[in-house]
């Protein structure tokens, strides 16, 4: 109990003093996960809208695969990316392994199914309502998808949030392709794992507290924004 209290006090001090190591890790984590979320949203939201509004043979199979990929274990995806990005892999020439770029790439693929599948579900509900109107107005399929994305933007924030939450909290994929290198690829989750294994609970706890604070802040921001755009 004494250790816990001491660790908690030290963690609070690290946060209050804006410890340089702590700040560096937090900023890299945000850079990697926000970049991955933004790119996944740019790809996954239009894709989800098109899946919701278009009928084609095998659509059910695409939906099942997409839903399955939502549960992809990060460490497995990390392994696949490791094999592709390693020197002997097909993308070894890009020299991305053990860089933040590799971490962003793996997180994009980790959260892309989540963003796409959630977007599809959200847009499908509005499509049922809008289809007669947009059909009557002779709005084309692409324009219809764009309209639906804009009109469901409040709900789509939740899809983006789910993607970000998955990215910022996962450890398996980024540790495999990033390598947890100090001052280069060390992010909050990999640092927590490392510091805990070393018995350095203060830094681990401080990072854990910041992770929770970020999750809380992002949720609050999304909630307040959603209230404004839902009507």
């Amino acid at each position: 109990m004494q250790d816990f209290r001491q660790s908690f006090v030290q963690a609070s001090q690290l946060i209050a003093e804006l410890d340089p190591t702590l700040v560096e890790i937090v900023l890299l984590s945000l850079r990697v996960s926000l970049s991955a979320t933004a790119i996944a949203c740019l790809i996954g939201m239009p894709l989800g809208a098109l899946l919701a509004t278009r009928e084609f043979p095998g659509k059910w199979l695409v939906t099942v695969v997409l839903n399955t990929l939502m549960g992809m274990p990060p460490v497995v995806l990390g392994l696949l990316f490791y094999m592709m990005l390693s020197a002997s892999g097909p993308f070894g020439w890009m020299e991305l392994l053990y860089t933040p770029g590799a971490m962003i790439a793996v997180q994009i693929f980790l959260i892309l199914p989540i963003v796409t599948a959630l977007t599809k579900q959200i847009v499908e509900i509005s499509w049922t309502e809008y289809q007669p109107l947009l059909g009557s107005l002779s709005v084309g399929k692409w324009a219809a998808a764009k309209t639906l994305l804009w009109d469901t933007r409040g709900s789509l924030l939740t899809a983006a949030l789910a993607g970000f939450a998955r990215a910022i909290s996962e450890v398996g994929a980024v540790i495999v392709v990033g390598g947890n290198i100090n001052h280069l690829t060390r992010v909050m989750t990999t640092a927590i794992a490392l510091e805990t294994s070393k018995g350095e609970l203060a830094l681990a706890l401080a990072l854990g507290m910041i992770l929770l604070l970020i999750a809380l802040s992002v949720n609050a921001l999304v909630f307040s924004t959603r209230q404004r755009v839902m009507l």
């Binding site: 809008y130 109107l133 009557s136 107005l137 804009w150 009109d151 469901t152």
Partner: peptide
């Protein structure tokens, strides 16, 4: 014919309004 359809409009029993 697309041009024929584009010269027609419809109002539904339950109005479908865009979220804007």
């Amino acid at each position: 014919d697309a041009r024929t359809r584009q010269q027609q409009s419809m109002v539904f029993q339950k109005p479908v309004l865009l979220r804007r």
